[in-house]
């Protein structure tokens, strides 16, 4: 994906933002040393589940007798078939919903309801006309790791010679400061980052490392602090 970012001199550029793959690669082979693969199968569908069958037969007792005599819960033609591309849909008692209304219910840590409001899907703000702001707000790495949990990481990569110089200088400055820098989005440069429409907002911190003429510029995404929950303190 693309990310529009500015540097300390307020110069901006669109560069590549790439996922950082975990260093795992385990495969499985069978007794003949051939690779195996996983496929998703249909086990049962809504038309053959307990709620639907009970509704058809009126009550559980009638359904129970039917289950002994026959196999109403199995569709011999379809169960066990491989599933291809599927989609997620909303379903109500009237069938598939084409015009759905969504609400967000916000719960406190103790489970009580704090607020209920119509759901708003925020747009992504990493590749807009307003580039992500170089806030100049630094935090030493050794302090940051004890305050925040960095759940996700992305890597910024240049797309041509100009953006190589642009990103290399950023990485060098951050490397020399041994610090992470808070990155903000939005017109005013004060919003957390949202990578996709409807995605979760994250506090984003930029880290830079250099090794000769090579650089590594990492976007650390955090939505959690490293702290003890209140309930544990009270207990």
């Amino acid at each position: 994906m693309a990310i529009n970012i500015s540097n300390a001199k307020n110069r901006d550029a669109i560069v590549a933002l790439e996922a950082v793959r975990q260093k795992r690669d385990i495969r499985y082979i069978d007794e003949n040393h051939n690779m195996v693969l996983n496929r998703r199968l249909l086990k049962t569908d809504v038309a053959h589940d307990l709620a639907t069958l009970t509704k058809k037969d009126g009550d559980l007792e009638k359904l129970g007798k039917k289950l002994v005599e026959d196999d109403p819960e199995i569709d011999i033609e379809h169960f066990g078939m491989f599933l291809g591309e599927t989609s997620r849909v909303y379903v109500s008692e009237n069938g598939i919903v084409h015009s759905v209304e969504e609400f967000e219910v916000i719960y406190n840590p103790d489970g009580s309801v704090r607020e209920r409001r119509p759901r708003k899907k925020e747009m992504q703000n990493i590749n807009n006309d307003a580039p992500l702001k170089w806030t100049g707000k630094f935090i030493k790495k050794k302090e940051a790791v004890k305050k925040f949990v960095f759940a996700t990481k992305k890597q910024l990569i240049h797309i041509n010679g100009l953006t190589y110089d642009f990103l290399y200088e950023m990485a060098k400055e951050l490397h020399e400061k041994d610090s992470l820098m808070l990155l903000r989005g939005g017109e005013k440069g004060n919003q957390p980052l949202i990578l996709h429409r409807g995605g979760k907002p994250y506090n984003a911190f930029l880290e830079g490392r250099v090794d000769g003429d090579a650089y590594c510029l990492i976007l650390h995404l955090s939505n959690m602090e490293l702290k003890k929950p209140k309930k544990v303190e009270e207990d």
């Binding site: 599927t86 997620r88 849909v89 598939i96 969504e102 609400f103 219910v105 719960y107 959690m224």
Partner: peptide, 25 residues
């Protein structure tokens, strides 16, 4: 545990509760 959580409630045009399911191709 730290901040609470958000759940999504969905309704159809008639105000009936709706739930996510998978639709095959």
């Amino acid at each position: 545990k730290l901040y609470g959580n958000v759940e999504i409630e969905a309704f159809d045009e008639a105000g009936n509760k709706a739930f996510l399911q998978i639709l095959d191709v």
